[in-house]
Design a protein around this nucleic acid. Sequence first.
DNA 1: AGGTCGGCCTGGCAGC
DNA 2: TGCTGCCAGGCCGACC
Length: 290
Amino acid sequence: MPELPEVETIRRHLAPLVEGRVLTGLEVLDPRWCEPLAPEELTRAVEGRRLRRLARRGKYLVWELDGEVHLLVHLRMTGTLLVGGQSRPAAHTRVRFDFDDGAQRLVFIDPRRFGTGELALGTDALHAFLGARLGLEPFDPGFDLAHLRALTRISRAPVKAFLLDQKRIAGVGNIYADEALHRARIHPLRVTGKLKPAQVAALREAVIAALEDGIEAKGATIDDFRHPDGVQGSFQDRFLVHLRAGEPCLTCGTLVRKLVVAGRGTYVCETCQPRPRARLVVTTGPRQRA
DNA sequence: AGGTCGGCCTGGCAGC
DNA sequence: TGCTGCCAGGCCGACC
């Protein structure tokens, strides 16, 4: 599932190919992709415009076109962008992009159809769109200890759920949440607001380090993620806990466990990441009061 | 207000 | 072998 490092990998790959090009054609084959906008409305808004910059915010790819037209593409679970040249049209092709150099046809492939394309017209609309959905990126200079302390202090959610909330921190998904918590030696069920200052500091560094390592490995390929040239990332070979249930922790040898936290498969070494003490349940026998 | 959970969607796989 | 049914999860909206 593409998270910040996977989306950044795609952005870095595509940017030199498409920046400065005119988007001569955008063909939306699956109308769901841009709902509630009709495919022809989207096409009309973007076609013929030059791509000034391919940017990224959180897990969104932001296509900055001339005239302050912004196309916001989200890959969700199974979305992939592939550079053309495929001999036969790939299955599950939802969108086709054509550029003025002719050679670089780009396809958006998405078996599960969760991926989306949305439009923001003007800079204010772009900021409103992103601001309503995303907190700071871990790489943002403003993502300092004071910022994270202020965020964590007021949350009663388990820290895993906290990390997955894009409105708080932009770009962390299930993989990097598990990996960061292991690096910080924090159990995913710990209540966020009860983390000690040293743990918040460790968490901040762990999130940044996990994402940096992910980018360096050019992302993780689990099911569907591919680079735009079809090549796979390698971060899955560096997982410390994620998807490693029943295998020994690389730090201490304890078998990695799989839990469900915030409805997500969650992998943890309960030696390196001690479980929060179970709340004491005071048993007073059957209630007498009516 | 803030946290949890179901729905969206389909490929893949366990189990019979 | 072939079918059924369940699981995966980012994000949103409904619910408590």
